[in-house]
Structure formats: C-alpha cells, structure tokens
Design a protein around this nucleic acid. Structure first.
Lengths: 256, 256
DNA sequence: CGAGATTTTGAGAGCCTTCAAAGGCGGTGG
DNA sequence: CCACCGCCTTTGAAGGCTCTCAAAATCTCG
C-alpha cells in the first residue's frame, strides 16, 4: 500500500471543520457557528480503503470530513473507474442524499479518516433557521461545481501531460488551504493509478507524463514528495485557474 | 448555419418557467409561485449565436431561460472549446454570478431565445423568505451536478461512440420533458462540431461515430431528424442513467 | 443562383492504451 | 533482524483509437 502522509487534517480544531471553511469566505455570527457545530456532533472513524457510501446503495445521511483524505468516484460497467473529486477536511460529502434515494457515487477513504454524519432533516432546519448559511452552502456548491467543469474541460480538451499537471496543482493548492506553510514541496498521497482514474488516463501513461514533467524541469520527485520547480510553467501547461479566488459575496442576506 | 427547430420552448406558458420545473418535483404553494414569478418579470430577447455572458467578463445577473436552446461553454487557450451544458426552457443560468466577480463560462444562444434576467439580491430575498424554495434550488443544482459528473465519467472513461450515444439520449430526454409527445424521433438541433465540443471529440470523428451508430442499426437519420431505433442498445452503449428519476424529497421543510 | 456553413469521406500520423516484465519499497511473519 | 510478499513504480514494444489535413458533396440562406 502506498504510504500516505500521516495526520492530515490534524490542523482541524475542535468545533466545526465546515464552519472554518465557510468562515474563510465571510465572518460568521455566533448563532451560525452553533448551528454548524450541530452538524458535527457525531463522529465516525474509517480505515483507509473503507467505503463510506457505495454507488447504488440506499443513502440518507450527509457528512462533513473532519480528518484525512477521501475521494468520490463512479464505476463504469466495463470495470473502469472515474474519480470525480478528492475530499479534504471541511468538505461536505454525500450531498446527493438530498436528492436521490440511491447514491450516484462511491465515497472512499484514502487515509484513515474521521467523518461526521448528519441527517437530511438537519440540513432542512439549517436552511430554515439560517438563510445566510443556506446561501453560503449554495456558494460552496457552486465553487465545487466550477472545479468540476474545469476538470471536464481538461478531460475533453487537454493533453495527458496537462491533465497530470492540473492534478498536481489542484492537490497542492487544496493541501495549502489546510497548512498555510506548505509551499512548493508536498506529499502527493495518491498512487499513479488514482491519478489516472482522476484524469482519465492509464497508470502507465501517468507514469510517463510525470517523467516528462520531471525531464521538462517543472517538477522534481524524491522520497514520495513532489516539488513544483516551475510553478508558472506548470500552471500554464494546466490551464489552471484558482477557483477559491475572485469571490464576490456582497449579495448575501444578513446573518442570524 | 444549421437549421434549428423553430419555436422550441413555445410550450412555456405565461407565468414562471422555473416554477414549472420545480413543481415537477413537488407541488408549490401560491406564495412560492408568486415568489418565483418575480424572478421572471423582465424579458430579454437574443438572436441565435448571441452571447448572454462571456467568460472573464464581469457578471452579476442570473437568468431563467424561457424560450429556445442555449449552451454554456469554456474556451481553452489553444482555442479549443468545451461545451459544459445545454440549456433548456426553465433552466437557471449564470448561477456562478452568485460567487464570482467574473464569469467562469460563456453562455450562448443556439436558437433565438428569450431569457429573464434577475439580480443576485432577488436570490437572497428568495432564500430568506422561502426556505423550501432555497432547498429545492439546492436539489435542482445537485441534479445538474450529477449530470455533470456523468459527463465527466463519459469523457474520462468511455469510447467516442458511447459519448455520442450519450449526447443523443440526453438531448432526446431533455426535449421530452418539454414535449411529452416526443418519443423516438426528434430534431437534434446541434451541429456535429457542437456535439464534438460537448463530447471532447472532433467534428470529423463525430460524423464517423454517427455513421457507425447508423450502421449498427441503433439510430436512423433523415431530413435533419434522428430516430432512436434501438433505445435499449443505445442506453447500454452510453452507460445512461436518468438523473431526473429516483428522487427522494421527503426531507424538505414546509412551504410558505 | 451564389456564398458560406455543414456534412461526408479518405489517408496518414500521433497520442495513448494494452500487454508484459523487471525493479523498488514497505509491511508482516518467522 | 531478515526474508518474503504484495503493491506500486518504471520501462519497452506493439497496436488501435482518435486527430489532422484535405477535398468533395450537400445544405441553408440571402
């Protein structure tokens, strides 16, 4: 098994991971903080490799990821897998339970993780009692949606090298949101097969693309770590846009 | 220019197209109907080919599509285009204006269209005054998100033929939501180049795949119309799942 | 009827996959 | 503490799917 960085998500303080995420966008009121904390009252631990939710299984809870790294994916009937999204502490997961009786995607732990399950009715109460949080959750979903369309455009219209470059940048940036000290060197924590399933490539070709990026001098690899030696070139190759920047939330209602 | 079916969306009755869409999921209260109608008080007409919103331009309004067919797409810096979504009457567009100062995607009219612009503050009021509508809009966004992940999996992991088959099914199904009488034969209303930009293929290859599907006997083409002659086989080839079915909305708060 | 867009078809090239095998690394059990 | 085992990474060779380039045919619209 691939070595995964230990203790990812230890930065997550007691209270609400999700509140932290939202308050990056906007200061929250004490009432809002309390409401969000109620979503994370229960805890559940999973071993790496364990599935939190399986495609086509009945589903009803939502989750906040508190600690560790997870992914959501779908399985096609020829047996191939497409990874839709990597999930970091503070991410809300299984939102499709708000809509579907059966889960459209599988959610799996890539490291040992801690998740906080909550019921759909809790979401209902939150929306009724805290309109601004409802709006913020819409904003959060929209950011996620845009990241998804970026990936879609990458799969449809960019080369294998560009897609691998994009994943490297995405992972580094998301990890940096948890650990501000992190800069150019980081532990990727994904197998080449996982990178392939996220980018629509084979593991073999991912390996070749990593080598090419290394030969091009834009990344370096050593001891399970990746270093972005020429971030500018990497971002250009990957068509990269930071979707957590350039926000404009002036329209939100007042907090309660 | 490709011939487009005339008068698409004429089925849209006076009132609110978007309310019609939502009430397919759940009966709405009179108060909710009135609130949604306020989103469609203003009208704007666009000629086919016109852009409603351009990538990277400042944006602030959202829109409901009332009549016609549109698409949202992104342009990569090598000049290639990825179509993200086709938009039908009743669809909400430009939701990214809730989040970003500058539009992440371009929205273009594929036929002459009528759209209803409304301000972000209208959304804010809606969320505060009608929690159940806020929840329904989340549901709506989530369905759209799932359609996007289906497309993502198709681009990443299925053959060209399967992707083209998927587009045909998707378009037929969405058109059938507007015109229940529509069954196996319909006017696609897309150029092969547009199909290519949606599926991540070249127009040339789309043409070959259409021919193959025809030779396989699963579709027929005549006079700008497509007939699905073997829908079962087509759905199997395309890994198709109907994301507008299997909903479970029991958790929603009460309507006002 | 002419101009421009779209569809169709062919030939060749290239990117990525498949298949295969060797090497490295970490974990486990003796 | 060492050896073994499984997973992951790396590399090579060959094949196929899809792209590029090119040109003719068809269709739409003015």
């Amino acid at each position: 098994m691939l070595w995964r960085p230990p203790g990812w998500g230890d930065v997550c303080v007691p209270g609400s991971c999700f509140a932290e995420r939202l308050s990056d966008m906007l200061p929250l009121t004490p009432g809002e903080h309390r409401a969000l904390e109620r979503l994370e009252e229960r805890e559940r631990h999973l071993r790496r490799g364990a599935a939190l939710q399986r495609e086509n299984d009945p589903c009803s809870d939502l989750f906040i990821l508190r600690k560790g790294l997870m992914m959501s994916s779908v399985l096609l009937d020829d047996g191939s897998r497409q990874i839709l999204r990597f999930l970091f502490p503070g991410d809300m997961m299984g939102v499709s339970s708000l809509v579907y009786r059966e889960a459209p995607e599988t959610i799996t732990a890539l490291t040992d993780v801690v998740v906080c399950p909550f019921e759909r009715t809790a979401m209902s109460a939150l929306i009724s009692d805290h309109p601004r949080l409802a709006a913020l959750i819409m904003v959060y979903n929209q950011i996620e949606r845009t990241a998804l369309t970026d990936r879609l455009a990458a799969l449809g219209r960019t080369s294998a090298k560009a897609r691998v470059a994009a994943i490297l940048l995405e992972m580094r940036n998301r990890m940096r949101m948890l650990d501000k000290a992190l800069t150019k060197t980081f532990t990727l924590g994904l197998t080449q097969e996982e990178i392939g399933d996220a980018t629509g490539l084979t593991a073999v070709h991912v390996n070749r693309m990593l080598r090419q990026l290394e030969d091009d001098g834009v990344i370096a690899r050593a001891a399970g770590q990746v270093t972005l030696t020429n971030e500018r070139a990497l971002a250009r190759a990957a068509n990269f846009v930071d979707r957590y920047a350039g926000l404009d939330l002036g329209w939100l209602p007042a907090g309660r």
